[in-house]
Amino acid sequence: MINPGKMLKEVLCSLFRKPVTVLYPHVKMEMPVGFRGAIKFSPDKCSGCKLCMRDCPTNAITINKVGEKQFECEIDLGKCIYCGQCVDSCFKKALEVTRDMELAQAGKNKGKLKVTHR
């Protein structure tokens, strides 16, 4: 069976429907719960085992010792691929994923997140 203009009806209906385009960034978009966005580091939980550094596929995460049982974490957002492997590798749950996905920065060095012990 052939039917030229099969989509005509659908197309005309669309004219009176609201467009599905989301006018991002004027309209905020919410990512689902459990979305793998920026990595959050809690310095007080970190034991400095550096398993996350070992497993990170892109060497984006660095843990440095700054004092007795005090560690700082530096994440290069330009290198991070947001796979969340470091979160899985961490036994102390010092790392967790957030839903934050608006991470674009102007400049290479601005993309480095550094979290130190307060």
């Binding site: 689902p32 719960v33 459990g34 979305f35 793998r36 691929i81 796979c83 969340g84 492997q85 994923v97």
Partner: peptide
């Protein structure tokens, strides 16, 4: 894509 993002946490490279 939304379902995948919901289930796995990423839209494309699900991990």
């Amino acid at each position: 894509m939304d379902v995948l993002a919901e289930l796995t946490g990423n839209r494309v490279n699900y991990g």
